[in-house]
């Protein structure tokens, strides 16, 4: 998810010079393959620990998770194969569809708010302030754990004695039950997340802005382009790869909202914040239904894969107009 700026061609540097067999120094198609085993033995040693981690904690769990999704399993018993029954139940589980709905609502509010605000901030920083201090201040919320951000706002947005409601009342508006009312619960969760991530996302975009060569702007200003149209015609298209990456990452992250919900509303009021991951947690750990929880997790996984795929296609994130 990284290296927005520097992206040398790995093949070139890797194949460019071979050490063991200088004879085989060929430059053909990148990745055309190596002759012999190359550094395989030593490479295996180098990746061995990482391989253990990969196999034990990513590969095997993925397979096991898929297997469990076809079983009925409580943590204190043994899994029992029940075929696709979990999936059939999910299809007609109103709480699943509700979870999908509220999660999507969260994602949309979160992404729109966060991206617009962050983009605005990035441009402001780019134009008027490049100070590390300012960037540090904006980054401060991101350094807090989700749990801390959630508790902090749970307190500030408290219906009875929270400072925000004191302010709202002072202005002359009626108090808002931020966490208690069904309409507000999800937007509130999204606001908390936006608060935490806004500065960070802005910094990412800021870095992207800095990577745009000045010559492009100079050319535009010679053409007499106005600031607004420069933004739409030049800045945004050139920022697209960065923006695409940021969007993919935030969307995928948002679909997995859990921490803030778990320490504040815990799915409520009614089902307003019973987001997917919280619902999975509830089924698997509170109600000891690991099979059902795993099936839900498989579906979340599929959703994320599809969303990421569509986004990458749609935003053509791997290409820049700069090239």
């Amino acid at each position: 998810m990284t290296t927005l700026t520097k992206h040398p061609d790995p093949e070139l540097s890797a194949t460019g010079r071979s050490r063991k067999s200088r004879k085989s120094q060929k430059r053909g198609k990148p990745g055309a393959g190596f002759r012999g085993i190359g550094d395989l033995k030593i490479a295996l040693l180098f990746i061995f620990p990482a391989m253990i981690g990969f196999v034990l904690f990513y590969l095997v769990p993925t397979i096991r998770g898929i297997y469990l999704s076809f079983t009925e399993y409580s943590i204190l018993g043994d899994p029992e194969w029940i075929g696709v029954k979990n999936y059939q139940q999910i299809a007609k589980d109103p709480l699943f569809w509700n979870a999908l709905g509220v999660t999507s609502e969260y994602v949309v509010i979160n992404i729109v708010l966060q991206t617009v605000l962050a983009l605005g901030l990035a441009i402001l920083m780019h134009r008027v302030a490049k100070s590390t201090l300012i960037r540090g201040a904006l980054l401060l919320p991101y350094l807090m754990a989700n749990v801390i951000a959630a508790l902090l706002w749970f307190w500030m947005l408290d219906y009875q004695i929270g400072i925000v409601n004191q302010f709202i009342e002072w202005v002359g508006l009626p108090r808002v039950a931020f966490f208690g009312s069904e309409q507000w619960a999800i937007p509130t969760q999204a606001l908390i997340n936006t608060w935490r991530h806004m500065g960070y996302t802005a910094l990412l975009l800021f870095a992207g802005l800095q990577a745009i060569p000045n010559t492009v702007y100079e050319a535009a200003s010679i053409d007499g382009s106005k600031a607004v149209s420069t933004f739409w015609r030049i800045t945004l298209p050139l920022l697209r790869p960065v923006l695409a990456l940021v969007l993919v990452v935030t969307v995928i992250g948002s679909f997995q909202v859990f921490d803030t919900v778990a320490v504040t509303t815990q799915g409520g009021p009614i089902n307003a914040t019973r987001v997917l991951q919280y619902y999975i947690y509830q089924r698997a750990f509170n109600e000891q239904d690991f099979g059902y929880g795993s099936a839900l997790a498989v579906i979340l996984f599929l959703i994320l894969a599809i969303v990421a795929f569509i986004q990458m296609k749609f935003l053509r994130g791997n290409q820049s107009d700069l090239d």
Partner: peptide
């Protein structure tokens, strides 16, 4: 009280 106003609050304390 309405249910929505009781999130994070507590009846005995009220």
């Amino acid at each position: 009280p309405k249910l929505e106003t009781t999130v994070g609050a507590n009846a005995p304390d009220a």
